[in-house]
């Protein structure tokens, strides 16, 4: 990325994206996850939307066989709708499509353990959760 491009991108995200995408609860969650991530790994240097995308799209062999990936139910495009195994529609995960996403700590506490267990076969780390949120906020 050239310095100009970087500046442009930064400017755009500051002027265009931020007003809709900042939310005190969500930012607080991210801050809390960052603090925890640092505790878990001293070398932690911030969340990455790209790592979040990779996590979202990765296929795991460690969870339930019928749900190898987040995309199994949520769909490949986070801006699109998903469908549960039982046929219920799932609203888009991208914050741009639903600004209220990730603004209820109780929902985050409920869904992260459930879905990480389901897909990865284990709890997610604070960094993984932060990456995921950062990716969804960027979408």
């Amino acid at each position: 990325m050239t310095p100009t491009k970087f500046l442009l991108t930064a400017l755009m995200s500051a002027t265009l994206a931020s007003p809709a995408l900042t939310n005190p609860v969500r930012d607080g969650q991210l801050a809390g996850l960052a603090a925890q991530a640092k505790k878990e790994d001293a070398g932690f240097a911030g969340f990455s939307a790209e790592r979040g995308r990779a996590l979202y799209q990765a296929r795991f062999a460690t969870g339930k066989a019928e749900t190898p990936s987040c995309t199994t139910c949520h769909g490949t495009d986070p801006k699109g709708k998903g469908q549960t195994k039982a046929g219920k529609e799932i609203g888009p995960m991208a914050v741009s499509q639903n600004p209220a996403r990730y603004t209820d700590p109780a929902e985050l506490e409920k869904w992260f353990p459930r879905n990480c267990n389901q897909v990865l076969g284990r709890e997610c780390t604070a960094r993984e959760k932060g990456d995921f949120l950062t990716f969804m906020i960027s979408q």
Binding site: K64, E66, K85, K110, P113
Partner: peptide, 8 residues
């Protein structure tokens, strides 16, 4: 039914 649907 194969899903983790844990609730408080």
């Amino acid at each position: 039914f194969g899903e983790d649907a844990s609730l408080p």
